[in-house]
Amino acid sequence: MVDLKKLRESTEKIINRDDVKYVIGWEKGTHGFQVTPLFITSSDDVERLIFNPLCVHNLTVFLMLQEKLPLRKGAEEDKRKVGVIVKGCDSRAIVQIIQEKGLNRDDVVIIGIPCTGVIDPKKINKKFPNQTKTVDIDEDANNFVIKIDGKTHKVPKEELLMDKCKQCQFPNPIIYDVLVGSEIKTTGKPNYKDVESFEKKSLKEKWEYWEKQFEKCIRCYACRNVCPMCYCKECMVDQLNPQWIRRSVNVSENTAWNIMRAFHLAGRCIDCGECERVCPAEIPLVKLNKKLEKEVLELFDYRAGLDVDVKPLLSMFKPDDPEEFIL
């Protein structure tokens, strides 16, 4: 658990710098187990900043969502840096984006938090349904301590953790300017059991499964917008000429969209699980991303977002890449 006082102190120091526009963190949400992104623009806002196991959001996306609007005549562009608070997985997104030259390292100030795992909103809402008031959450070594209406519930972590956190290998930020707290030892190993058991199904079973999933898609593109790696100026799905994917919502167009989304994350997805969290149709998108992560690891021995100096997977090659499928 991170010392909130220290976090606030470091944040205050950074926001008081002249070259920082704002720092992105988390604050209490409006109801139940909600936590919401907070944009700290002055030291007055710092006291609203929190960090607890409900802070699932990958705030890196807001670096990529910054708008560059046309300036009024004579106005000057605000070139100050942006601060962002990151967990281990979030920091990999920054590494990956810097690798792709989507972001300049000098334009961000990164506050790292060694993370002991976050709570899956779906799981906790199922366990404690109908929470209107905001709830305080703490943690000890093996439990989450949840205070609801004066009552304290101790829930084993295993029960509420997001699946990605149970197998997390990178709880410590990979890249940071300030690290709040001390680094955590990791025991996680990549675990592709889910993917492997699904692979064993027949083609027909697989398609039946995905068809049912993609049928539900309403193409709100929340998966794309929440993804820190989806920062193209114009998404291929929005293109009109040529129009790769029609705006009609039906299984075949939805499938094409989901293939496109998944493929564009091949060797780039850092497994923050945001896409699946936000999907209103509850499509298991991580299951797709995980598959690609596994393949990329097996075929090319590559993992995304670990080293700023490595080239992105699909813009490099080795002469001896696997090619047994080639005629």
Partner: peptide
């Protein structure tokens, strides 16, 4: 500031 610009709310 924190809006992602997705279509969930409207859809």
């Amino acid at each position: 500031l924190k809006c992602l610009g997705c279509g969930i709310c409207t859809y």
